[in-house]
Amino acid sequence: MDKLISDFSLGLFFWQTILFIGLLFLLRYFAWKPILNAIKEREEGILNSLESAKNARKEMQNLTADNERILKEARNDREELLKEARTMREKMIDEAKGEAQVEANNLIAKAKESIETEKQAAIADLKKQVADLSIGIAEKLVKEELASKDKQVKLIETMLKDVKLN
């Protein structure tokens, strides 16, 4: 202890303290603060980058999920549309078939009707022609039958006989 005290030099202590404090303050403002700030900024930068990378990844995952969802939806939509179209087509076909049937039936009915009318007309015509022909024949026959008086009387007698019988 005695040696320590005798070794102690006030001048050295004085200069050491002054120089050290001066060094401390100069280094503090011109070296440590910029260095520590730079390190801190860099560390924060790294943290932020990591964070943003994480966020980006998450976002990308979300996007992928979204894409998939949209795709799925689109596929569903397409299927639905196709289904709808199919039903619509079937419905339309059905409707058209029905309509066609009705139309055809109508046409057939009309045709039948006109055929009937034509037939009736033809029959009537035929009847008329047959009647005319018959009358012509009958006329000719009558003319021939009734050419002599005897024959006329005989006929009247026959006819009267027939009437009696009726």
Binding site: G11, F30, W32
Partner: peptide, 19 residues
């Protein structure tokens, strides 16, 4: 004291250079 002055000057130069 002389050594302290020299080393202090060196430290200032060195660490301010790093900064």
């Amino acid at each position: 004291v002389f050594s302290i002055i020299i080393l202090a000057a060196f430290m200032l130069w060195f660490f301010i250079g790093i900064a």
